[in-house]
Design a protein around this nucleic acid. Sequence first.
DNA 1: TATGGCATGTAAGGTGTTACATGATTCC
DNA 2: GGAATCATGTAACACCTTACATGCCATA
Lengths: 172, 172
Amino acid sequence: MDFVILGMLLERPMSGYELKKTVDVTIGLFYKASYGSLYPALKRLENRGWIGVNESDNQKNKKTAYIQPEGKAAFLDWLQIPTQLSRKEQMLRFFFFDYLDQPTRQKRLTERADTLRKEIKQLERVEADLADKFHNREQATNHNYRIHVLHYGLQYLTVELNWIQQIREDEP
Amino acid sequence: MDFVILGMLLERPMSGYELKKTVDVTIGLFYKASYGSLYPALKRLENRGWIGVNESDNQKNKKTAYIQPEGKAAFLDWLQIPTQLSRKEQMLRFFFFDYLDQPTRQKRLTERADTLRKEIKQLERVEADLADKFHNREQATNHNYRIHVLHYGLQYLTVELNWIQQIREDEP
DNA sequence: TATGGCATGTAAGGTGTTACATGATTCC
DNA sequence: GGAATCATGTAACACCTTACATGCCATA
């Protein structure tokens, strides 16, 4: 959580509420931020001196968090360490799928395929949006890797979809 | 963790130690079980009545866990609910990769590619092993989905590898 | 008899989830 | 004025990680 927040704050200062929304629309497909983890994380980061927090003048009930140099340094450190495995719960479930009766299995596979198709469509919309913005020169900074991740996401979802299709064909 | 244990115990009764080894060699690529999570989980499952535990007669220091009908029922319930997203930490990192300086980035990408190649080789070995066992009719039960997951794993890793290769070519 | 693998477990610390509680602001 | 949305946060609970502690057993 901490590094997600730091990464988002590198772009611009934001409130906790804005952070959640931003996370949801940008990396929501593979990261979910709940307030119960977000606000404690903000406090943590502030105590560590990695971020600072400004109370807003006009809106009493609003605080804006901004990143500190120490926070940026910590973020860049994290960014460059190699990742170890992340849990792939979907794969875990499929691993045990032989234990499921065939009709339920079929049903779940179909549902999963539907979900994947929706997610693919969603990503394609995001991609189109991005291309639009690019043509209108609306973006100040270059974020090539966000586009790379988008492409990866599409390929990744497509592979899973094809994989399920294949299984469904072979199954009955 | 709980459902991993239950799934493994469906095959045969095992000790905690055996469970860890089995998890490592079967789903180790996407799931890591530490004793600190495994043993408490076993206790949890026993308290819930989902598994039973036998103290061994000959080896004092050994306990064997076996699955109970309630445990099997709970496992099958879990198996058929649709999964929500799992965190993809690697993707998270890549999402922010624009903030990394080019040389470090290049280095990390190369390292990741190497890791992927190793993982692919490892999976291919597992696949060959499985094919061997199949020909020698060593397997009692059919585990088609484990083979499916294996194939998926290979495709998945290959997609990421190609993706990185593409980026590395475009980058400098 | 000592090394390595078998075997079980706990404690501290951290972090996440869900549900709840509450108040401000905007717009119809 | 009321609904939606903006906005911040806490409490209980669950679970995981890492590090540590301990003992058995085979075999070289």
